[in-house]
Design a protein around this nucleic acid. Structure first.
Lengths: 275, 275
DNA sequence: CGATGTGAACTCATTCACAGCT
DNA sequence: AGCTGTGAATGAGTTCACATCG
């Protein structure tokens, strides 16, 4: 049964401070990939309208729930599930409400039901063939994950340019030359492309993937990919993650340094406080 | 037991360059009843207050800028830089404004200056020793990155439980047994721990890292780690990424179904098909 | 002029708090 | 009595638009 919710969010702003009209939107800005949705109101019919942030969490809930199912747990409350997923229960309930009402008041949720519903929403009832481009260290690791994280994402093709690798099976799949990408992607109906090449090659590989018809890309290369609007790109950026952690280490250090030391306003690291 | 934080945190308030008397009293606008702020633990103070989202982007800008510097570019406008980083210029300028005013009106930014300032803010002027736990496929790949993404993050220790691995050098560093983690982490002043173990071992490894004094963790294992408040956890979750992409594939498919080959729909909602 | 820097408006996301069902 | 589901309130993050200054 499809989601029967209404399109939800209207202009909830009850604040009278709302400005006049000004609907002159359509700014042709340099907007990059990321979001595809058409900004101007009029949501498509019974819009799927699940906030991106919620989608990410649904995937987490799904994993937790699968674990519970294996342990034979049948029912769980929002409180417990939220806890296991590392979020608070209000958020969890709101997230689940986006996909429908599958809980029982006074009781909780049936694990099986939730698993099924989340899988449906995430499109996991269908298999998504994946290809990995760039069979270096990381590519190897990814290919060897075999069936990729969880089932449902079979890796069916590997590409590289290194002649020594072509034909060599990695994780059971022989490596093809990148020049054959179009043919192979079509033949094996690849729907998701993973880029694990050195940064310099990433954009070109990306272009080839797109040309081959791939519309979803997971990018491990430390580059900002330019893609057409209709292509969805997610990136996993080690350097950025490390640097964010670094930022926190630094901030922690700052705090430690100045704590206890009176209200001195001296800029710790050079940020001049102008006035 | 606080679960790991995901995103957002930190109180904003007061830009470093705020003019005149900012920092007035408390919260702006009419506060409702006695709602005594509940600051994140002991943080606060003269918070550097850079939104988490901005921090992540600063890291991206930094990479783009470094590339430009190498190419000999001296100056760049917000428009150009934004473009290269895949964001719009307003966002970029706002992000940069969090770290100070280093641009020249009518001209743009000096690449070198920006690189320096971002590095300072991200705490990259200091080296952060990294350890990797779990030397399987992924751990190998990570260890072999050598100096980790970009310089500044030297991998100085590797851990595993497999007797066959202990002592074997990977990427130049011999693998230690996890039981020695406390000693080794202390000796090598590891400040960031990377978890690349199978899911089942992740929480325990995490606990050991924390016990050993590591306060920043990058987790590749598909589990929600439970850590004390003062520990910062970032996660890289392949399964979640794939599932988010899957969701988009599914949504795309839905849209396609209903727009083109959709069997006669005497539907009420005008199917708004743009372009 | 032209591009930065930034209050203010707006949009998206999270949390509160409670009505409503079991 | 207990727990879900959800409007409404709050807060975070993004975009607008323009004063400002090199």
């Amino acid at each position: 049964m499809a989601a029967q919710r209404d399109e939800g969010d209207e202009v909830v702003t009850g604040t009278p401070t709302a400005p006049g009209a000004d609907r002159a939107d359509g700014a042709p800005g340099a907007d990059t990939a990321e979001h595809v949705e058409e900004p101007t109101a009029l949501t498509r019919e019974r819009a799927r309208a699940i906030p991106e942030a919620a989608v990410a969490r649904l995937a987490v809930y799904l994993r937790v729930l699968s674990g519970l199912a294996e342990q034979g747990v049948n029912t769980i409350s929002s409180e417990e599930l939220a806890n296991a997923a590392g979020v608070n229960s209000a958020k969890l309930r709101k997230d689940l409400s986006y996909i429908g009402s599958y809980g029982t008041r006074g009781v909780g949720y049936e694990v099986e039901v939730l698993v099924g519903q989340i899988e449906r929403i995430l499109g996991l009832t269908r298999k998504h063939s994946v290809c990995v481009v760039g069979i270096g260290n990381l590519g190897h690791a990814l290919a060897n994950y075999g069936g990729f994280p969880g089932r449902g994402f079979p890796v069916t093709a590997l590409f590289d340019v290194d002649p020594d690798l072509i034909g060599v099976p990695v994780g059971g799949i022989p490596v093809d030359h990148i020049d054959d990408i179009s043919r192979v992607v079509a033949e094996r109906e690849v729907s998701i492309g993973v880029i694990a090449t050195p940064p310099k090659a990433a954009q070109e590989v990306c272009d080839r993937l797109v040309a081959a018809g791939v519309q979803c890309i997971l990018n491990f290369a430390p580059v900002v990919l330019q893609v057409p609007d209709y292509v969805e790109v997610r990136k996993v950026d080690l350097a950025v993650e490390m640097q964010i952690l670094s930022f926190h280490v630094a901030r922690r250090a700052d705090e430690a340094t100045e704590s206890g030391g009176g209200p001195d306003l001296s800029d710790v690291d050079g940020v001049v406080i102008r006035r």
